[in-house]
Amino acid sequence: MAVYERSYRPFVGPRTPTAGRWRVVARYALADQWGSRVFLASLVVALTLPVIAALIIYLRHNASLLSLLQVDVSQLLDIDGEFFLAGVLVPQQWAALWMTLLVGPRLITADLAAGALPLYLARPLTRRTYVLGKAAALVGLLSAITWIPGLLLWGLQASLEGPGWAAENLRLAGALLGASWTWILILSCLSLALSAWVRWRPVAQLFLLGMLTVPTGFARAVNEILELDRDWAVLFSPTDLLTVTRAGLFGDTVHSWAYIDLPDLPLASAWLAVALLCAACLLLLTLKVKAFEVVR
């Protein structure tokens, strides 16, 4: 094979270290999304609300501007637990759901539909690296619209209010971080598992929308007609699990009216259900993400 020996020159330059290869997958995972007008518009809208919240916080602490605008301080929202829960976190979590619907189901579906999975996994990439890269892209995006703006707003309020407020409301920061990550985990695991199993993006999106809404209806109906001692049916409803765990994290930092319609479920069981849901999704992922595909 003299010709082969003369012409073949293996790559000898530096390679991306094994531990950092997931970053390459992550970088390309959302590459095509930046050209989508719907994606960009949604991202802008998702980031607008934190900007408005920042303006409110700033206004609340700027007496001269308030007098210039002839606004009474009492007319502005109080910057407290309710503000961060109902005014910042809940809308941002809806925005995260929307962004996941747009982006999540495409992550692995596109590779499956194009038969690209064997190509990816023929490179020095493990299945774990591939999934980690795809997940990192989604987690990064969702972080940018949930806990990062949440903590920045908390930091802004703390800097304007003084160190005393920060010390008193440390739990609020933890709750913002914890509730955001819970939702990010649920959304990422569900959408990645679905995108690995459903070949067509619109179908995967419809499934994801259904999985996040239909169990809520079922849970309500089950609790209604079975008259159980606790609302156990919400264990199967991801959105209700978020509501319960979020309430647990915020605790008494918000008033009780924020918890109207809160499902009656032990907090520990809700956390366990979240963990099981994520584990089940990861299992589904490992079953499907393979370097070969059986075509029937």
Partner: peptide, 26 residues
Amino acid sequence: KVFAEVYHTLVLRFCVFFGCAAIFLM
């Protein structure tokens, strides 16, 4: 009465909605 509740809050609101979405969108 229970049937009526389940029919409106679950069957119409979610099952028929998503069922029709799955069938007619495709």
